[in-house]
């Protein structure tokens, strides 16, 4: 929250010396060690690495879904080390999440699902929310499917609704976990390209965990993890800088 004075905009994500372990005592098993990572405004960062390398744990820590143990992690100006549950819940409202599964509420229409992302904002009205949801759906190419239930949509369409939902709340950061894993090649590519395009237009940074080699070219930067540490990688080629 120190953006007032500073001429340089603060990084949306700034991690220093982060460590995390599961279990206690003898069973303690460290999964993240001494992580330093900065995501700059508007940057699209891909996080790759073999399973078990700790990238998902890192994503949940940045997303304020898990309590910090060690180090410092500043997300959208909020220090997460020692943050209370209420502070974390509050921060999550400024983060757009996209999951492997679409996780849409089956009993709500596409439009209502998207509106759920802004229902917690007390300044919005019902009409305003639905209008924004419709506009968001139009932005992902589903302007005419607002009244459809998730069960009436294809896998790719559902994931596009999830993208619309993640973006509807004007998040300061988007976290995505294997968003293409459940999709075929074509619709997976569409969803990620759409996500990238919408995020770029809004200047929202994205941290995307993926195994999918087909979408590596979307990134501004690729961060590889191995055994709980960040290992050096080459800058993605052929991608214009943000």
């Amino acid at each position: 929250m120190d953006g007032h004075a500073s001429a340089v905009r603060p990084a949306p994500v700034e991690i220093r010396g982060l460590g995390y372990a599961y279990g206690e005592g003898e069973l303690r098993r460290p999964v993240l060690r001494d992580i330093d990572l900065t995501i700059r405004p508007g940057e699209i960062v891909l996080l790759t690495g073999p399973s078990g390398s700790g990238k998902t744990t890192l994503l949940t820590l940045i997303g304020a879904l898990r309590a910090m143990q060690e180090g410092s992690c500043r997300v959208l100006g909020q220090e997460l080390m020692g943050a209370s549950e209420a502070q974390r819940v509050q921060l999550r409202r400024q983060i757009g999440f996209i999951f492997q599964q679409h996780n849409l509420l089956g009993f709500l229409t596409a439009q209502q699902n998207v509106a759920m992302a802004i229902e917690l904002d007390p300044r919005t009205t019902e009409a305003g929310r639905l209008e924004r949801a419709t506009a968001m759906l139009a932005a992902v190419g589903l302007g005419d499917r607002g009244a459809s239930l998730p069960s009436e949509l294809s896998g790719g369409q559902r994931q596009r609704v999830a993208v619309a939902r993640a973006l509807a709340g004007e998040p300061g950061l988007i976290l995505a976990d294997e968003p293409t894993a459940a999709l075929d090649r074509q619709s997976g590519g569409e969803v990620v390209r759409l996500l990238r395009e919408l995020a770029k237009r809004r200047g929202v940074p994205i941290l995307l965990v993926t195994h999918d080699p087909r979408i590596l070219d979307l990134a501004d930067r690729i961060v590889s993890m191995e055994d709980g540490r960040i290992v050096p990688t080459k800058q993605a080629e052929g991608v214009p800088a943000a």
Partner: peptide, 13 residues
């Protein structure tokens, strides 16, 4: 749009 905007203001609960 056009350039990376600042993160949104924290919302009053």
């Amino acid at each position: 749009t056009g350039e990376a905007g600042p993160p949104p203001e924290p919302r009053a609960p």
